[in-house]
Design a protein around this nucleic acid. Structure first.
Length: 890
RNA sequence: GGGCAAUUAGCUCAGCUGGUUAGAGCGCCACAUUGACAUUGUGGAGGUCACAAGUUCGAAUCUUGUAUUGCCCACCA
């Protein structure tokens, strides 16, 4: 016999092991003729622990996969981890520093640091693997991949070189986002803007007033820019020069007219610092102006700063202002100026724009063949979503996606860190060699930069499907490797890419870019974006506030993986943030336990009837079924359809919610209750089995465990069981309707009990006046007695009023419970009066509606018919209430 | 500055293309309790569906505007 309470801790790990050993996670175990269904798991960063974001991702993808697997598709879910270049290098460097090392990069050197990181990553991968298992993820571990493995490196190198040859990758001096703290460039998407209040200074610069928040960049300024239409400065001509006294003495400056200047802002004139500002750089490029570096890559001022040379910019700023002030050049200070400061998403330090020799991907060059046209990478990215090759759920993100593409600049892909795929370019004297493998001969030095981690992640959907052995064969081209990799041929393009909306640009867009370019295929057909999980107050969970964090690893032992999964999926709509807190998880834990006990009940009924549930293989004939049986089986068909449709259309929350209320409200609260006394074990078992099947994608552990107790002998694991089909012959609308009537009678009796304050346990009698439901109710007498706790039950067709009886009027039935002088006539009258008024008011509304010619002309017949029904039922009810009131008058 | 979303019960949220007297979970109140389940059951209280105007026979649902909140993008020297 099952224990009274479900204990997930006791069974989850063993069940997972059984699944894994059965081979059920592998596509090889599926029907070979099944249509492929593939998901590439977004690889968690190999930096440590899984968090709730991963848990959501794993739960959603596991639901997709389990559902499609049960539906007979050849499903493949590839797990993996990401080497997460900057993030991982940071973590390890920090760890080494905590151990007392001052500058790990210098002290260890490239080789040793990489070895240290690799060691850390291996440990971290092991942790992640076990955590992914804890969530119940049914992914194919034999195909686990890693973004920094040799096969991936091969792909990265091949793609890089091909893009270089196509002119899509170039090296150039361009303004980039420099992170002085991490000593590397970062891409535009890795820069965040934080609001900051700072002083805003206005200085005298020759005849002009110029405003700036960053006086420390102004040493090299020798251009003043203004709008060509600005009348205030009409007398100055473009290209004209003037002399000005400046920080370190006199300078000669040139006037530049450019329409990008906002005449309304500040004084309408500014000086520019092309080396350290994106906008200024663009102006300088346009007019062919000189550029000069002011701030070094270490964040300190260069010799151009004169006496301030070598100072950190933050320290120098007040001194520079002081100096200009003493020279009488400071004309105004606004202390409350609010502007956005660029900070590094990774390191958190200030970002300093710098001009640097870097590698870029050109997103505008139209050289890529796509569907018979030659397009730029930007255009392809736009096209595949625009033409519906790729659908984004929810679709509003398509707009965001297009907007991002429109604003996309060339992607800076080189990084000055050591952990990552190294740029496959070699230099020797003046020669440059771009090739996947190192050139032969002495003296070649490989480029010291590594690639943006998203460069390799962008290849994820297809690089994980290539055969690593083929990838190791240098004689094969990338095309040949793809052609000779059966997994790639079978499983690509993948079916669904499920990930958080926060990496739509970082990752999803880049996969589209790189995969269409490399393979000529889209990477996936559907993008499903989930929202962020927030705290109860709607705040972000952050590491800096540990009390706000919910750690899946704390939750799983306490509530079970199933409860956690449900709490993150039900009530959550795609793309929308949701809040998670323990009470919610506990609620689903209760649900899982309810299911457990319902199964226990079924098993007990079978035991009592001396029927082994494992021998039950089919349902009894319809003629042998009770009303409740037929109603239940009928309802089960509707639920099966709704859940199947919901899962097919990615409405997971709705389908989950349907199951939740079906199990709790219909199956447990009514069907099981009605089964007490005369249980039909075959129907009970059948229904429970179907429920377990339908719920399996949502809560795989508990359903698998229960399945082992109720399945038929020849059935294997639930994970490999086929998905329930809708059986039309079991749909029985009449039974469902009759069942509702039965329930309302029982509820009516309960209500009277409650309203009249009838003592608990005290048996009462009820008289039921029926019209058309007479036969039904008589046949259900035992149920009504038991569930309504009624001693005597009388059915009458003529509506003779009973004096000392409380009444409830249903549309077709009225129920009276005779009370021995207990009835409070005044209260009863008041209640009925109120009810009467309500019905009258309601009937007036319906009358008006039905009288309205426009309504009868426009409304669909179904709606009109429903209104008529309502009217009839309520008129009848009203009549009864009036009769009853008259009687009470006496 | 541009864009996207949200606003429904004390809290967290459903409510699909307009059509029963607007729902659920948690919380709250009352009652129940030996045998599936206290991780329970029954009953109940609680809502001018943010506001305003419009379209319609009919609006939580569609349109427009307003307010509040959140997010994304751009960025101003």
């Amino acid at each position: 016999m099952l224990p009274k309470t479900y204990d997930p801790k006791a069974v989850e790990d063993a069940i997972y092991k059984r699944w894994e050993e059965s081979g059920a996670f592998r596509p090889e175990s599926c029907d070979p003729k099944g249509e492929p269904f593939t998901i590439s798991m977004p690889p968690p960063n190999a930096t440590g622990q899984l968090h709730l974001g991963h848990a959501v991702m794993l739960a959603l993808e596991d639901i997709f996969i389990r559902f499609e697997r049960m539906r007979g598709k050849k499903t493949l879910w590839i797990p993996g981890t990401d080497h997460a270049a900057i993030a991982t290098e940071n973590v390890v460097i920090k760890q080494l520093k905590d151990k007392g090392m001052k500058d790990p990069r210098k002290e260890l050197g490239r080789e040793k640091l990489i070895a240290a990181i690799a060691e850390f990553v291996e440990k971290s991968k092991a942790t992640i693997r076990s955590q992914v298992r804890k969530m119940g993820s049914s992914c194919d571990w034999f195909r686990e991949r890693y973004t920094f493995e040799p096969a991936l490196n091969r792909c990265v190198n091949e793609v890089f070189c091909r893009m270089y040859k196509d002119g899509l990758i170039y090296r150039g001096h361009r303004i980039v986002n420099w992170d002085p703290k991490l000593q590397t460039t970062v891409s535009d998407d890795e820069v965040e803007y934080k609001e900051e209040k700072s002083a805003f200074y206005t200085f005298q610069y020759g005849p002009f007033q110029i405003a700036t928040a960053r006086p420390e960049t102004k040493f090299g300024d020798k251009y003043v820019v203004m709008h060509p239409e600005d009348k205030r400065y009409a007398k100055y001509k473009h290209g004209e020069t003037f002399d000005a006294e400046w920080i370190n003495g006199p300078v000669r400056a040139t006037v530049i007219k450019d329409a990008s200047i906002d005449p309304e802002f500040g004084t309408g004139v500014m000086t520019i610092t092309p080396w350290h500002d994106h906008t200024d750089f663009a102006i300088a490029e346009k007019h062919g102006l000189e550029k000069e570096q002011i701030i070094g890559f270490d964040g300190k001022l260069l010799p151009v700063a004169g006496e301030f040379y070598g100072m950190k910019i933050d320290d120098a700023r007040p001194l520079i202002v002081e100096k200009l002030k003493s020279k009488g050049l400071l004309t105004k200070v606004d202390e409350n100026y609010v502007h956005n400061k660029a900070v590094s998403q990774r390191g958190g330090g200030a970002i300093e724009p710098q001009i640097k020799l870097q590698w870029f991907i050109d997103v505008n060059k139209e050289v890529v063949p796509w569907k018979g046209e030659t397009m730029s990478l930007k255009q392809i990215m736009h096209s595949v979503v625009h033409h519906g090759d790729i659908a984004i759920i929810p679709d509003r993100f398509e707009k965001t996606y297009f907007h991002w593409i429109d604003n996309l600049r060339d992607w800076c892909i080189s990084r000055q860190i050591w952990w990552g795929h190294r740029v496959p370019v070699w230099y020797k004297d003046d020669e440059t060699c771009v090739d996947p493998v190192a050139p032969k001969g002495q003296g070649w030095e490989q480029d010291t930069d590594t690639l943006d981690t998203w460069f390799s992640s962008a290849l994820w959907t297809w690089s994980t499907l290539i055969d690593p052995k083929k990838a190791a064969d240098p004689s094969l081209s990338l095309e040949e490797i793809l052609k000779q990799s059966p997994d790639f041929q079978t499983f690509h393009p993948t079916s669904v890419m499920e990930t958080g909306y926060d990496i739509l640009f970082f990752w999803v867009a880049r996969m589209i870019l790189m995969t269409t370019y490399t393979t000529g295929q889209i990477p996936f057909k559907t993008v499903y974006l989930h929202g962020m999980i927030r705290t109860r107050d709607g705040k972000k969970m952050s590491k800096s506030h540990p009390e706000t964090m919910i750690d899946p690893l704390d939750i799983i032992p306490k509530y079970g993986a199933d409860a956690l999964r449900l709490s993150m999926i039900v009530g959550q709509s795609p793309g929308a943030d949701s809040r998670l807190y323990e009470e919610k998880i506990a609620g689903y834990r209760n649900f899982v336990n309810k299911l457990w006990n319902a199964s226990r009940f079924v098993l007990m009924q079978c035991e009592e009837a001396k029927i082994d549930p494992k021998t039950i293989t089919k349902l009894p004939k319809t003629s042998e079924l009770s009303l409740a049986d037929r109603a239940m089986l009928s309802k089960l068909q509707a639920v099966t359809k709704k859940v199947t449709d919901g899962l097919t259309e990615y409405r997971l929350s709705e389908a989950g919610d349907t199951l939740y209320s079906f199990v709790w409200d219909d199956f447990c609260d009514w069907y099981l209750e009605l089964s007490k006394g005369n249980a039909n074990c075959a129907v009970l078992t059948h229904t429970l089995r179907k429920i377990l099947q339908l719920l399996h994608p949502y809560c795989p552990f508990v359903t698998e465990e229960l399945w082992s107790h109720v399945k038929s002998d020849d059935a294997g694991l639930l994970i490999s069981k086929s998905w329930p089909e809708v059986k039309k012959e079991l749909i029985d609308v009449e039974a469902e309707e009759a069942f509702l009537q039965l329930i309302s009678v029982i509820q009516a009796v309960r209500k009277i009990r409650s309203e009249q304050g009838i003592e608990p346990g005290k048996e009462i009698a009820a008289i039921i006046h029926t019209q058309k439901w007479m036969d039904l109710l008589e046949s259900q007498e035992a149920h009504i007695r038991r569930l309504g706790k009624i001693e005597n039950l009388t059915f009458e067709t003529d509506a003779k009023p009973h004096k000392n009886a409380a009444s409830v009027f249903l549309s077709d039935i009225e129920v009276h419970v005779p009370l021995e002088g207990l009835i409070d006539v005044v209260a009863e009258r008041k209640k009925l009066q109120k009810e009467k008024e309500e019905i009258e008011c309601f009937l007036q509304g319906i009358d008006a509606k039905l009288q309205n010619a426009d309504f009868t002309a426009h409304a669909p017949e179904k709606v009109i018919a429903a209104e008529r029904e309502k009217q009839k039922a309520n008129v009848e009810k009203l009549r009864k209430i009036e009769q009853r009131l008259k009687m009470l008058e006496k």
